[in-house]
Design a protein around this nucleic acid. Structure first.
Lengths: 108, 108
DNA sequence: TCTATATATTCGACTAAGTCGAATATATGG
DNA sequence: CCATATATTCGACTTAGTCGAATATATAGA
């Protein structure tokens, strides 16, 4: 059984899915903030990413320097198979709990 | 802004919505376990319910004894307005993060 | 070549949420 | 009144959420 994803972990995982090849810390924070309006500190995202990696749900690699005016190298993240399963499982659980609810609930 | 719901808090809140007038601790546990296959101890549900009440998202009342062979009185829970908003907000957030994803993700 | 500055990640620390074994409470039937 | 079914509470610990401040590292230009 895959480990369960916490509430924010789910959002981070979904951001990784959406961002694909351009998924690194700052971009994840922007994706979540921009889309949902929920703006966390960057450190929150990095802490979560580190824990997800520790659980074997995602993997990271260091990117090359880019020629866009300075800055540290980016650390890119991708979902591993176990991570994909965990995301699907989370969504499935939510779906079974919201299925059939009155439309006013805006079931996802 | 409503308080954010944790992952399990969301499930408990949705169980309350589904159960309506018959929402008490044991029933909530059964609803979640039966529907999602996730079986937690009863204490997990009660702890969560107590915290949700502390945050003003749900309210409780003690039921009358029922004539079904013994047992302590049930404690019924209902969502308050703030609780309904919190649930909608959680679902909305999830929806914005899953919207448009490939169908294989089974977006909720 | 240094240094100001932009970009990005890590550290340390604390609060909130998830989890459950065991104890406790309270109805009812016999 | 007590054995038993049903239901909730206690105490304790682990995991997830959160962020201010520190640190690292590219590049452009003096």
């Amino acid at each position: 059984m895959e480990p369960r994803l916490g509430e924010f972990e789910q959002l981070v995982m979904l951001a990784l899915v959406r961002l694909g090849d351009d998924a690194y810390g700052v971009a994840v924070q922007r994706e979540i903030a921009g889309r949902t309006g929920r703006s966390t500190g960057f450190a929150t995202v990095y802490t979560t990413l580190a824990r997800l990696e520790g659980k074997g749900l995602v993997a990271s690699r260091l990117g090359d320097p880019t020629p866009e005016r300075g800055g540290r190298r980016k650390k890119y993240f991708v979902l591993l198979a176990a991570g994909r399963r965990a995301v699907r499982e989370s969504l499935r659980t939510l779906r079974t709990m919201t299925r059939g609810l009155d439309a006013s609930w805006g079931a996802p």
